Amino acid sequence: MAPPALNAGELEARLTGLHADSYGWALSCCDWNDAEAEDVVQTTYVKVLSGQARWSGRSTFRTWLFGVVRLTALERRRREASLRRRADRAETDGSAAPTATAAPDEAVLAAERARRLRQALDELPDRQREVVHLVFYQGLTVSEAGEVMGVSVGSARTHYHRGKQRLKTLLAEDDR
Rank of each mutant, 00 (worst) to 15 (best):
V151L: 06
L121I: 03
L170V: 04
A145L: 05
L18D: 11
R54F: 00
R129E: 00
A97M: 13
A103K: 12
G57V: 06
L71Q: 12
Q128T: 01
E12C: 02
V48M: 11
L49H: 05
G94K: 12
V142A: 07
H159S: 15
V46E: 14
L109Q: 08
E123W: 01
L74G: 01
T158Q: 14
E36A: 15
D88F: 02
R162A: 13
E123F: 02
L71E: 12
A103N: 10
E75L: 01
R62G: 12
V68S: 04
G17H: 05
R79H: 13
S59I: 02
P125I: 02
D39L: 02
G24D: 07
L18I: 01
V46F: 07
T101S: 10
E123M: 14
R166S: 05
A87W: 08
L6F: 06
R166N: 06
V46W: 07
D126F: 12
T63F: 06
A100I: 12
G67V: 05
A103M: 12
H159Y: 15
R176Y: 03
E10Y: 01
R157W: 15
D34C: 00
R162C: 03
A96H: 10
R118P: 00
E80A: 10
V40T: 08
A96Y: 13
C30Q: 04
D175A: 15
V108T: 11
T92I: 09
E106I: 11
R14G: 01
L140I: 02
W55D: 03
G24M: 02
V68W: 04
D21W: 03
T72F: 04
T43N: 13
L167R: 09
E75K: 06
W25D: 00
A13R: 15
L167K: 05
R85N: 04
W64P: 03
R113H: 08
A2M: 08
G9L: 10
A111F: 01
V142R: 11
R176N: 09
D34S: 11
D174L: 09
E38H: 11
A2E: 12
R77A: 14
V135T: 14
Q128N: 12
E123L: 13
G154Y: 01
Q42E: 13
T63Y: 07
H133E: 08
D126Q: 12
R113I: 03
L74C: 00
A156S: 10
K164R: 15
V108N: 15
C30I: 04
L109Y: 05
Q138H: 08
R89D: 07
R86W: 03
G67I: 05
S143L: 09
A81I: 05
R129D: 00
T16E: 12
G139D: 04
R14T: 01
L171W: 04
G139S: 07
A107W: 10
A35Y: 10
A120W: 02
V132P: 05
Y23D: 00
P98C: 02
F66P: 01
R162M: 06
H133T: 14
R115Y: 08
V142W: 06
Y160V: 02
L71P: 00
R127F: 07
V132Q: 03
S152N: 05
D122H: 11
L171V: 03
H133C: 11
Y160P: 03
A26K: 10
R77M: 12
D175N: 09
V153Y: 09
E147V: 11
T169W: 04
E38I: 06
S155M: 10
G139T: 05
R157D: 14
V108E: 13
G154T: 14
V108S: 12
W25M: 09
